[in-house]
Protein backbone atom coordinates (compact mmCIF):
# COMPACT_ATOMS: atom_id res chain seq x y z
CA UNK A 1 0.00 0.00 0.00
CA UNK A 2 1.43 3.33 -1.04
CA UNK A 3 1.68 5.86 1.72
CA UNK A 4 0.65 8.98 -0.17
CA UNK A 5 -1.27 9.91 -3.31
CA UNK A 6 1.81 11.76 -4.58
CA UNK A 7 4.04 8.71 -4.18
CA UNK A 8 1.51 6.59 -6.07
CA UNK A 9 1.37 9.05 -8.98
CA UNK A 10 5.14 9.18 -9.15
CA UNK A 11 5.31 5.42 -9.23
CA UNK A 12 2.76 5.22 -12.08
CA UNK A 13 4.63 7.92 -14.04
CA UNK A 14 7.84 6.01 -13.62
CA UNK A 15 6.24 2.77 -14.81
CA UNK A 16 4.80 4.46 -17.91
CA UNK A 17 8.23 5.91 -18.67
CA UNK A 18 9.77 2.47 -18.36
CA UNK A 19 7.46 0.70 -20.79
CA UNK A 20 8.99 1.84 -24.11
CA UNK A 21 12.47 1.58 -22.65
CA UNK A 22 11.77 -1.91 -21.40
CA UNK A 23 10.55 -3.07 -24.83
CA UNK A 24 13.37 -1.30 -26.65
CA UNK A 25 16.08 -2.92 -24.58
CA UNK A 26 14.83 -6.48 -24.95
CA UNK A 27 14.15 -6.21 -28.67
CA UNK A 28 17.18 -7.94 -30.11
CA UNK A 29 18.17 -6.67 -33.52
CA UNK A 30 19.82 -8.46 -36.42
CA UNK A 31 22.18 -7.10 -39.02
CA UNK A 32 22.04 -7.92 -42.68
CA UNK A 33 25.64 -8.74 -43.58
CA UNK A 34 24.81 -8.37 -47.26
CA UNK A 35 22.18 -9.85 -49.53
CA UNK A 36 22.81 -13.36 -50.77
CA UNK A 37 20.68 -16.06 -52.36
CA UNK A 38 19.76 -19.09 -50.29
CA UNK A 39 20.51 -21.42 -53.23
CA UNK A 40 24.15 -20.32 -53.02
CA UNK A 41 24.05 -21.39 -49.39
CA UNK A 42 22.95 -24.82 -50.60
CA UNK A 43 25.77 -24.86 -53.15
CA UNK A 44 28.33 -23.91 -50.51
CA UNK A 45 27.02 -26.56 -48.14
CA UNK A 46 27.17 -29.20 -50.85
CA UNK A 47 30.72 -28.18 -51.72
CA UNK A 48 31.73 -28.66 -48.10
CA UNK A 49 29.95 -32.02 -47.88
CA UNK A 50 31.82 -33.12 -50.99
CA UNK A 51 35.07 -32.65 -49.10
CA UNK A 52 33.95 -34.06 -45.78
CA UNK A 53 31.61 -36.94 -46.60
CA UNK A 54 32.57 -39.52 -49.21
CA UNK A 55 29.07 -40.98 -49.15
CA UNK A 56 27.45 -37.81 -50.46
CA UNK A 57 26.50 -37.94 -54.14
CA UNK A 58 24.56 -35.33 -56.10
CA UNK A 59 22.06 -35.58 -58.93
CA UNK A 60 20.75 -32.74 -61.05
CA UNK A 61 18.11 -32.46 -63.78
CA UNK A 62 19.72 -29.94 -66.12
CA UNK A 63 19.88 -27.04 -63.66
CA UNK A 64 23.43 -27.17 -62.31
CA UNK A 65 23.98 -23.42 -62.52
CA UNK A 66 20.61 -22.53 -61.02
CA UNK A 67 21.16 -24.90 -58.10
CA UNK A 68 24.81 -23.78 -57.63
CA UNK A 69 26.03 -27.36 -57.92
CA UNK A 70 28.94 -26.43 -60.22
CA UNK A 71 31.64 -26.79 -57.57
CA UNK A 72 30.51 -30.22 -56.43
CA UNK A 73 30.41 -31.38 -60.05
CA UNK A 74 33.88 -29.99 -60.73
CA UNK A 75 35.44 -31.40 -57.56
CA UNK A 76 33.75 -34.80 -57.62
CA UNK A 77 32.71 -35.69 -61.18
CA UNK A 78 32.48 -39.39 -60.26
CA UNK A 79 29.94 -38.60 -57.56
CA UNK A 80 27.85 -36.26 -59.68
CA UNK A 81 25.00 -37.49 -61.88
CA UNK A 82 23.60 -35.24 -64.60
CA UNK A 83 20.30 -36.95 -65.40
CA UNK A 84 18.98 -34.52 -67.99
CA UNK A 85 15.43 -33.22 -68.00
CA UNK A 86 14.07 -36.35 -66.38
CA UNK A 87 13.11 -35.69 -62.79
CA UNK A 88 11.21 -38.94 -62.25
CA UNK A 89 14.28 -40.94 -63.20
CA UNK A 90 16.40 -38.71 -60.96
CA UNK A 91 14.27 -39.47 -57.88
CA UNK A 92 14.27 -43.20 -58.63
CA UNK A 93 18.03 -43.24 -59.17
CA UNK A 94 18.54 -41.40 -55.90
CA UNK A 95 16.52 -44.08 -54.13
CA UNK A 96 18.67 -46.76 -55.78
CA UNK A 97 21.93 -45.07 -54.84
CA UNK A 98 21.03 -45.30 -51.16
CA UNK A 99 21.03 -49.09 -51.49
CA UNK A 100 24.79 -48.93 -52.01
CA UNK A 101 25.17 -46.76 -48.93
CA UNK A 102 25.27 -43.39 -50.68
CA UNK A 103 23.61 -40.21 -49.45
CA UNK A 104 22.05 -38.69 -52.58
CA UNK A 105 21.19 -34.99 -52.86
CA UNK A 106 18.86 -34.23 -55.77
CA UNK A 107 18.67 -30.72 -57.17
CA UNK A 108 16.06 -29.01 -59.30
CA UNK A 109 13.39 -26.31 -58.91
CA UNK A 110 10.86 -26.86 -56.12
CA UNK A 111 8.04 -27.43 -58.59
CA UNK A 112 9.91 -30.21 -60.39
CA UNK A 113 11.20 -31.58 -57.08
CA UNK A 114 7.73 -32.22 -55.69
CA UNK A 115 4.55 -31.96 -57.74
CA UNK A 116 6.09 -33.40 -60.87
CA UNK A 117 7.51 -36.43 -59.11
CA UNK A 118 5.13 -36.90 -56.21
CA UNK A 119 4.43 -40.57 -56.75
CA UNK A 120 8.12 -41.34 -57.30
CA UNK A 121 8.93 -39.66 -53.98
CA UNK A 122 5.99 -41.33 -52.29
CA UNK A 123 6.74 -44.91 -53.34
CA UNK A 124 10.46 -45.11 -54.13
CA UNK A 125 11.68 -42.71 -51.40
CA UNK A 126 9.23 -42.13 -48.53
CA UNK A 127 7.42 -45.47 -48.39
CA UNK A 128 10.71 -47.23 -49.13
CA UNK A 129 12.41 -45.38 -46.25
CA UNK A 130 15.25 -44.20 -48.47
CA UNK A 131 17.85 -41.71 -47.26
CA UNK A 132 17.35 -39.21 -50.09
CA UNK A 133 17.76 -35.44 -49.70
CA UNK A 134 15.43 -33.62 -52.08
CA UNK A 135 16.88 -30.14 -52.45
CA UNK A 136 14.58 -27.64 -54.07
CA UNK A 137 15.44 -24.17 -55.27
CA UNK A 138 13.27 -21.40 -56.74
CA UNK A 139 10.44 -22.15 -54.34
CA UNK A 140 7.49 -19.80 -54.10
CA UNK A 141 6.69 -16.46 -55.70
CA UNK A 142 10.22 -15.07 -55.48
CA UNK A 143 11.20 -17.16 -58.49
CA UNK A 144 9.74 -14.08 -60.17
CA UNK A 145 9.35 -13.44 -63.86
CA UNK A 146 9.00 -17.05 -65.04
CA UNK A 147 5.50 -17.00 -63.58
CA UNK A 148 3.09 -19.49 -62.10
CA UNK A 149 4.21 -22.56 -64.09
CA UNK A 150 7.41 -22.47 -62.07
CA UNK A 151 6.30 -20.83 -58.81
CA UNK A 152 5.11 -23.66 -56.63
CA UNK A 153 3.13 -22.60 -53.55
CA UNK A 154 1.92 -26.08 -52.63
CA UNK A 155 5.17 -27.96 -52.08
CA UNK A 156 5.35 -27.72 -48.28
CA UNK A 157 1.89 -29.25 -48.07
CA UNK A 158 2.73 -32.00 -50.55
CA UNK A 159 5.90 -32.93 -48.72
CA UNK A 160 4.70 -32.64 -45.14
CA UNK A 161 1.86 -35.05 -45.85
CA UNK A 162 4.29 -37.84 -46.70
CA UNK A 163 4.88 -40.08 -43.67
CA UNK A 164 8.49 -39.94 -42.49
CA UNK A 165 9.44 -36.92 -44.59
CA UNK A 166 11.33 -34.10 -42.87
CA UNK A 167 10.47 -30.67 -44.30
CA UNK A 168 12.87 -27.74 -43.99
CA UNK A 169 12.52 -24.20 -45.36
CA UNK A 170 15.56 -22.05 -44.63
CA UNK A 171 15.62 -18.27 -44.31
CA UNK A 172 19.01 -17.06 -45.51
CA UNK A 173 22.35 -18.05 -47.00
CA UNK A 174 24.05 -19.02 -43.74
CA UNK A 175 21.13 -21.08 -42.51
CA UNK A 176 20.74 -22.85 -45.85
CA UNK A 177 24.40 -23.80 -45.86
CA UNK A 178 24.17 -25.09 -42.29
CA UNK A 179 20.99 -27.02 -43.06
CA UNK A 180 22.51 -28.63 -46.15
CA UNK A 181 25.39 -29.93 -44.06
CA UNK A 182 23.11 -31.02 -41.22
CA UNK A 183 20.71 -33.09 -43.31
CA UNK A 184 23.54 -35.34 -44.50
CA UNK A 185 23.85 -36.55 -40.90
CA UNK A 186 20.12 -37.20 -40.60
CA UNK A 187 18.97 -40.72 -41.52
CA UNK A 188 15.80 -40.52 -43.61
CA UNK A 189 14.22 -38.57 -46.45
CA UNK A 190 14.39 -34.78 -46.27
CA UNK A 191 12.82 -32.02 -48.33
CA UNK A 192 15.03 -28.92 -48.21
CA UNK A 193 13.35 -25.82 -49.67
CA UNK A 194 15.13 -22.63 -50.60
CA UNK A 195 14.90 -19.84 -53.15
CA UNK A 196 16.24 -17.87 -56.04
CA UNK A 197 16.56 -14.18 -55.04
CA UNK A 198 19.23 -12.44 -53.02
CA UNK A 199 17.84 -11.76 -49.57
CA UNK A 200 19.31 -10.43 -46.32
CA UNK A 201 21.87 -12.75 -44.74
CA UNK A 202 21.55 -12.28 -41.00
CA UNK A 203 21.88 -15.58 -39.13
CA UNK A 204 25.22 -16.69 -37.68
CA UNK A 205 27.84 -17.90 -40.09
CA UNK A 206 28.92 -20.74 -37.80
CA UNK A 207 25.46 -21.68 -36.52
CA UNK A 208 24.65 -25.19 -35.43
CA UNK A 209 21.61 -26.32 -37.38
CA UNK A 210 19.31 -28.52 -35.35
CA UNK A 211 16.56 -30.21 -37.36
CA UNK A 212 13.19 -29.73 -35.69
CA UNK A 213 14.39 -27.01 -33.31
CA UNK A 214 12.76 -23.59 -33.49
CA UNK A 215 15.02 -20.56 -33.25
CA UNK A 216 13.64 -17.75 -31.15
CA UNK A 217 14.93 -14.53 -32.67
CA UNK A 218 13.30 -11.88 -30.46
CA UNK A 219 11.55 -11.95 -27.12
CA UNK A 220 8.12 -10.41 -26.90
CA UNK A 221 4.96 -10.39 -24.84
CA UNK A 222 2.08 -9.32 -27.08
CA UNK A 223 2.18 -11.43 -30.22
CA UNK A 224 4.12 -14.44 -31.49
CA UNK A 225 5.25 -14.35 -35.12
CA UNK A 226 6.15 -17.78 -36.45
CA UNK A 227 7.87 -17.36 -39.81
CA UNK A 228 9.71 -19.58 -42.24
CA UNK A 229 11.94 -19.04 -45.29
CA UNK A 230 12.14 -15.60 -46.83
CA UNK A 231 9.44 -14.34 -44.46
CA UNK A 232 11.71 -14.57 -41.41
CA UNK A 233 13.59 -11.37 -42.26
CA UNK A 234 10.26 -9.69 -43.03
CA UNK A 235 9.03 -10.78 -39.60
CA UNK A 236 12.06 -9.16 -37.96
CA UNK A 237 11.42 -5.93 -39.86
CA UNK A 238 7.77 -6.09 -38.83
CA UNK A 239 8.74 -6.68 -35.19
CA UNK A 240 10.81 -3.46 -35.18
CA UNK A 241 7.86 -1.39 -36.39
CA UNK A 242 5.45 -3.16 -34.05
CA UNK A 243 7.84 -2.46 -31.19
CA UNK A 244 7.72 1.23 -31.97
CA UNK A 245 3.94 1.03 -31.91
CA UNK A 246 4.08 -0.57 -28.46
CA UNK A 247 3.31 -4.10 -29.62
CA UNK A 248 5.98 -6.45 -28.35
CA UNK A 249 6.53 -9.25 -30.88
CA UNK A 250 8.26 -12.55 -30.31
CA UNK A 251 9.69 -13.76 -33.59
CA UNK A 252 10.31 -17.47 -34.03
CA UNK A 253 12.24 -18.78 -37.00
CA UNK A 254 10.74 -22.14 -37.89
CA UNK A 255 13.15 -23.64 -40.36
CA UNK A 256 11.77 -27.14 -39.82
CA UNK A 257 8.08 -27.40 -40.62
CA UNK A 258 8.08 -31.14 -40.01
CA UNK A 259 8.77 -32.29 -37.38
CA UNK A 260 7.44 -29.03 -35.93
CA UNK A 261 8.82 -27.71 -32.65
CA UNK A 262 5.43 -27.86 -30.90
CA UNK A 263 6.86 -27.03 -27.49
CA UNK A 264 8.46 -23.77 -28.62
CA UNK A 265 5.24 -22.61 -30.27
CA UNK A 266 3.02 -23.55 -27.33
CA UNK A 267 5.39 -21.90 -24.85
CA UNK A 268 5.48 -18.64 -26.78
CA UNK A 269 1.75 -18.46 -27.47
CA UNK A 270 0.96 -19.22 -23.82
CA UNK A 271 2.88 -16.05 -23.06
CA UNK A 272 1.64 -13.80 -25.88
CA UNK A 273 -1.87 -15.17 -26.34
CA UNK A 274 -1.90 -14.94 -30.14
CA UNK A 275 0.10 -15.82 -33.25
CA UNK A 276 0.83 -14.71 -36.78
CA UNK A 277 2.26 -17.33 -39.14
CA UNK A 278 4.19 -16.15 -42.19
CA UNK A 279 5.30 -18.20 -45.17
CA UNK A 280 5.82 -18.01 -48.93
CA UNK A 281 3.24 -20.72 -49.54
CA UNK A 282 -0.47 -21.30 -49.83
CA UNK A 283 -2.28 -20.95 -46.50
CA UNK A 284 -3.74 -24.37 -47.27
CA UNK A 285 -1.24 -27.03 -46.36
CA UNK A 286 1.54 -24.78 -45.16
CA UNK A 287 3.27 -23.84 -41.92
CA UNK A 288 0.19 -21.91 -40.76
CA UNK A 289 -2.00 -24.98 -40.76
CA UNK A 290 0.62 -26.97 -38.89
CA UNK A 291 0.80 -24.27 -36.21
CA UNK A 292 -3.01 -24.08 -36.04
CA UNK A 293 -3.18 -27.80 -35.40
CA UNK A 294 -0.64 -27.63 -32.59
CA UNK A 295 -2.52 -24.77 -30.94
CA UNK A 296 -5.96 -26.33 -31.44
CA UNK A 297 -4.75 -29.42 -29.61
CA UNK A 298 -2.80 -27.70 -26.87
CA UNK A 299 -3.56 -24.04 -26.41
CA UNK A 300 -6.24 -22.55 -28.69
CA UNK A 301 -5.43 -18.94 -29.55
CA UNK A 302 -6.27 -16.36 -32.24
CA UNK A 303 -4.13 -16.79 -35.36
CA UNK A 304 -3.64 -14.80 -38.56
CA UNK A 305 -2.12 -16.31 -41.68
CA UNK A 306 0.36 -14.39 -43.84
CA UNK A 307 0.41 -16.68 -46.88
CA UNK A 308 -1.01 -16.82 -50.39
CA UNK A 309 -4.77 -17.24 -50.46
CA UNK A 310 -5.35 -20.40 -52.50
CA UNK A 311 -4.07 -18.82 -55.70
CA UNK A 312 -1.44 -19.31 -58.36
CA UNK A 313 1.30 -16.74 -58.76
CA UNK A 314 2.17 -14.70 -61.86
CA UNK A 315 5.08 -12.95 -63.55
CA UNK A 316 6.71 -9.96 -61.86
CA UNK A 317 9.72 -9.02 -59.79
CA UNK A 318 10.04 -10.83 -56.48
CA UNK A 319 9.38 -7.63 -54.52
CA UNK A 320 6.30 -6.77 -56.61
CA UNK A 321 4.93 -10.28 -56.17
CA UNK A 322 5.54 -10.40 -52.43
CA UNK A 323 3.74 -7.08 -52.09
CA UNK A 324 0.84 -7.99 -54.35
CA UNK A 325 0.26 -11.33 -52.63
CA UNK A 326 0.70 -9.88 -49.14
CA UNK A 327 3.92 -11.61 -48.13
CA UNK A 328 6.03 -8.79 -46.68
CA UNK A 329 6.65 -6.97 -43.43
CA UNK A 330 3.68 -4.65 -44.01
CA UNK A 331 1.36 -7.66 -44.20
CA UNK A 332 2.87 -9.12 -41.04
CA UNK A 333 2.39 -5.81 -39.21
CA UNK A 334 -1.28 -5.69 -40.27
CA UNK A 335 -1.80 -9.28 -39.24
CA UNK A 336 -0.13 -8.69 -35.86
CA UNK A 337 -2.28 -5.64 -35.12
CA UNK A 338 -5.38 -7.57 -36.10
CA UNK A 339 -4.57 -10.67 -34.09
CA UNK A 340 -3.60 -8.67 -31.00
CA UNK A 341 -7.07 -7.07 -31.05
CA UNK A 342 -8.69 -10.49 -31.26
CA UNK A 343 -7.22 -11.50 -27.90
CA UNK A 344 -9.78 -11.74 -25.12
Amino acid sequence: MLSTKREGLLKIKELIKQIPIFVGITMKTYTNTGNKDTRSGFGAGLTELGQTNEKVVALCADLIGSLKMDDFKKNHPERFFQVGIAEANMIGMAAGLTIGGKIPFTGTFANFSTGRVYDQIRQSVAYSDKNVKICASHAGLTLGEDGATHQILEDIGLMKMLPGMTVINTCDYNQTKAATIAIAEHQGPVYLRFGRPSVPNFTDEDQKFEIGKAVQLTEGTDVTIVATGHLVWEALEAAKTLNEQGISAEVINIHTIKPLDDAAIIKSVKKTGCVVTAEEHNFLGGLGESVARVLALNHPAPQEFVATQDTFGESGTPAQLMEKYGLNSASIINAAQKVAKRKK
Binding site: F81, A88, N89, M90, I91, G92, M93, A94, A95, G96, L97, T98, I99, G100, G101, K102, P104, D119, Q120, R122, Q123, S124, Y127, S128, K130
Partner: peptide, 19 residues
Amino acid sequence: VASGSLGQGMSVAIGAAQA
Protein backbone atom coordinates in the same frame (compact mmCIF):
# COMPACT_ATOMS: atom_id res chain seq x y z
CA VAL B 1 12.38 -50.96 -52.59
CA ALA B 2 8.61 -50.64 -52.66
CA SER B 3 7.02 -51.28 -56.03
CA GLY B 4 3.52 -51.50 -57.38
CA SER B 5 2.96 -48.05 -58.74
CA LEU B 6 4.41 -48.94 -62.13
CA GLY B 7 7.38 -47.65 -64.05
CA GLN B 8 9.70 -46.79 -61.17
CA GLY B 9 11.88 -49.86 -60.79
CA MET B 10 14.35 -49.32 -63.59
CA SER B 11 15.40 -45.92 -62.24
CA VAL B 12 16.01 -47.47 -58.83
CA ALA B 13 17.97 -50.32 -60.41
CA ILE B 14 20.13 -47.81 -62.30
CA GLY B 15 20.85 -45.92 -59.08
CA ALA B 16 21.87 -49.16 -57.37
CA ALA B 17 24.03 -50.04 -60.39
CA GLN B 18 25.80 -46.68 -60.20
CA ALA B 19 26.37 -47.20 -56.47
